[in-house]
Amino acid sequence: MYFTVVAVNVGIFVLLALSLNIIIGYAGQSAMGHAAFFGIGAYTSALMTSTMGISFWISLPVALIVTGIIGAVLGLISIRLKDDFLAITTIGINFVVVAIFQYSEIFGASLGMTVSKPLFFGVKMTAPMYLTLIFILIVLTCLFINKMNKSWFGLALASIRNDEMAASSLGIDVNKYKVLAFTLGTAIAGLTGAVYAHFMTFIYSSDFAFIVSISIISMVVVGGIGTIKGAIFGAVLLGVAPELFRFLADYRMIVYGGLLVLMMRFQPQGLLGDNSFIMRNISKIFANIKKQKGGGQNAGNA
């Protein structure tokens, strides 16, 4: 049971990291308030199921769409800003959204919101069922991102990330694509929030605070920005790390923070990013296997 719960939590982080990666990795926009959208999805679905009595399964796509729309509007307002200005603006958005959750009566204000456990064909959802749901969502998200990267849209995002000015001189509506990436990323975060709310059965404004945004960014950066494998690896690593370092008790945050500092100093491209220490060695091993295979075949021919 403990492992399943940890696994669901890690899976939620994987989805968050994958979705944030669309914005900061593929579109290259420094968004620092991802947890806000995670929260918007969580509260949207919680309102639907627990206050209005609508099915959890309907609340999932609604949370996705509502968060996507809010993401698009906020994106339209802020995406014209560049780099550090966008970062500060999105941090501001995060604080405002958390404050709204904390002070609005409909969101339970400072008492938080109790979320009723959803039913799946008449049975109350158990942790393994959540794990399955999360796993399916992760697979779908990966397939979607993969497809996106191979499309014109993905190529356009790559060009924007490389050089915005050159991209717009080639006929690419830079702002439109940035907002689109922002919308997609926030929508997936909203969907994740809906699952999170019903898995935890209780949500509180600080679950979606700025510190959570920072954790998600750390996952993407540590794993390897701009890659699917990096985002997943980073989320699993940093998601599991607090559990692994539990024996260090009060010192685990020091270890966690220290890891981040060391990473940025020695592997800024992330553990699984291009030309990282790990990827270099993996490709070396593969090259060796290939060589041996090739050698074996040659020997056979002789």
Binding site: L155, A158, S159, R161, N162, D163, M165, A166, A167
Partner: peptide
């Protein structure tokens, strides 16, 4: 200064 897309 060219400004080609370096990573493409």
């Amino acid at each position: 200064g060219r400004r080609v897309f370096g990573n493409l």
